[in-house]
Write a protein that binds this DNA or RNA. Sequence first.
DNA 1: GAAGCAAGTTCAGAATCTGAACTCACTAGC
DNA 2: GCTAGTGAGTTCAGATTCTGAACTTGCTTC
Lengths: 112, 112
Amino acid sequence: MSSEPAPTGPRVCGIADALTLVGDRWALLALRELGFGVGRFNDIQVNTGAPRASLSARLRSLEDSGLVERQRYSEHPPRDEYLLTDAGRELMPVLGELRAWGEKHASGAPRT
Amino acid sequence: MSSEPAPTGPRVCGIADALTLVGDRWALLALRELGFGVGRFNDIQVNTGAPRASLSARLRSLEDSGLVERQRYSEHPPRDEYLLTDAGRELMPVLGELRAWGEKHASGAPRT
DNA sequence: GAAGCAAGTTCAGAATCTGAACTCACTAGC
DNA sequence: GCTAGTGAGTTCAGATTCTGAACTTGCTTC
């Protein structure tokens, strides 16, 4: 340990960057739904259990980060749905592993 | 979707369970440090940048969840360090993928 | 024109997080 | 013995963030 360059602040690596974008329960659950092909706000909201305001904010920041994009599926009552971008889709394997881990080690965890 | 049993509440799967245990920036960054072999409180605190109180609470809940265990490394000034359990170690591949994803898609993300 | 639906937004109160300072148990130096 | 220093936390007040409930907008159906 004595040969290391003595970091002056928190060490920052890909994990910290990733968490800045998606290190949030509602963000990850929303991405899960999008991965399932569920793209409409109300469906995501019901399936995840996220409060509407939190979900709205989360989706917006995912959109800003380029993980999600909004696509209009109805012109007349102006309705958008959300889709994964490539970057978002590439997160799916991570979610897959997280789910496998959760099913093995965290199933039945006390919930909120 | 019409043949499914119409869930009455939020759909809960391994991901939600996993997030209940580790869906938190400081928890995951602490686990990263433990994976690196850094087990002492102050080192984890400096490397992650987590506030001491948050880190303390996070480590405690990781211990409660069985992902981390505390081991005494000095009797006299009573000092503990933290180690990953098997369940915690099995999360490392997920963190590895998350890091790869973060380096590819989130590096340079606006921080704090 | 009254009612309903989807997708949000607003708001006030509740819950959580944060930094700074303090405690505790010792070891080292004078 | 007394003072300073280290590691591992804890405490606390203030700032930030989250939450649920209600409201809004644009349009369709009865």
